[in-house]
Amino acid sequence: MLELNEISLRFGDKRVLDGCTLHLQKGEHIALMGPSGCGKTTLLRIALSLQVPDSGTVQRKAGGLAAVFQEPRLLPWRTAAENVNLVLSDREETLPEARAWLKRLELDDAGDLYPAELSGGMQQRVSIARALAASPALLALDEPFKAMDSALRERVMGLTAERVKDTALLLATHSEEEAEALGCRVLRYQDGKFV
C-alpha cells in the first residue's frame, strides 16, 4: 500500500531522517513513536506527499487517502456536518451520512455549529469523523486523540479501530495505549530511522 525507501531529510544542520525505510500493507497498522521533534510528523507528511525528502522514494498504491492532523484543519466558514461532507460528495444527499459520522463521534448536536463554536476537542473529533467518513485505503493519524478525556478517548479509539480494520494505518503518537488500541506494530525512532 505504501513504500518509503531510504528516506533522508535534513532541516538545516539537523538530520531528521536518515535512510528510513517503511513498508505498509493493506490492513497493516504501524505506530511511529519517539521523542517530540524526532521526525514522526515529517515522515507522515512525506508519506502523504506533503513534503519532499532530500533523498529516497515514496510509492503509494492507488486508493483514497485521509489524515487527521495535529490541528483539526476545519473550514471555519462551514458547519461541522458540512466539513465532514466536504470529503463525501459535498452535496445535500450525503449530508445525512456526514451527520451519522458526527453522531458516532458523540457530536449529535454539533452538526449545525461552526468550528469557532466548538471546543478544541470537539473540533478534533470532527476531523476524525471526516477522516473515517472518507473510507480511505491509507489513513495517517498524527496524535489524533489528544484534547480528549480518557473515557471519551477510549470510545473514540474503539470506533477508529473498528473502522480501520482493512485500512493501512500510519499513526504518530507518544502513547503506547493508543498504539495498542489500534492494533499497531510499534516502530521507535533510532538514529534517523524508525525500527
Binding site: A67, R73, L86
Partner: peptide, 22 residues
C-alpha cells in the same frame, strides 16, 4: 490557509470544490 490546501491535497478534493470551498 496552507493547512486547508494540504487537506484538499490529501483528500484529493476536485479542483472546483477547492475553488468553491477554500
Amino acid at each position: 490557509d496552507p493547512g486547508l490546501l494540504e487537506l484538499a491535497r490529501v483528500y484529493e478534493l476536485p479542483r472546483l470544490r477547492v475553488l468553491r470551498r477554500i
